[in-house]
Design a protein around this nucleic acid. Sequence first.
DNA 1: AAGGTGACAGGGT
DNA 2: TACCCTGCCACCT
Length: 109
Amino acid sequence: MKKRNYINEVYEVTKCIPEGRITTYGTIAAFLGLGSARMVGWALNKSFSEDDVPAHRVVNRKGELSGRVHFPNPTMMQELLEAEGVKVENDKVVDFDRHYWHPEMSMEE
DNA sequence: AAGGTGACAGGGT
DNA sequence: TACCCTGCCACCT
């Protein structure tokens, strides 16, 4: 099974997200120039089989834990975020803008 | 080979 | 402000 380059890029960016920080699919897509945020979602879906990727730190533009159903346990994503200091309420991140992280903050090439 | 799906985003109503 | 529809591109059946 061949890994697409862009998928590997998504993993790298996601791994660089600091604890207690979150970002969006669209942000990663734009940073990597993928053109569509859906690619990021697909890439992260495979991340469970590929490597230890903090996919719980990636949410959609509304700050909702849209990907929690893809975790081993639907509640795991929220638990992980709260354990890192990110408060989640009603499946949405509280103070989304405050925890927001941008790849350029740490990954400048 | 063609059609449908999906961890999204943006604009319009 | 919230909900609905459309556009996106790769993967799966």
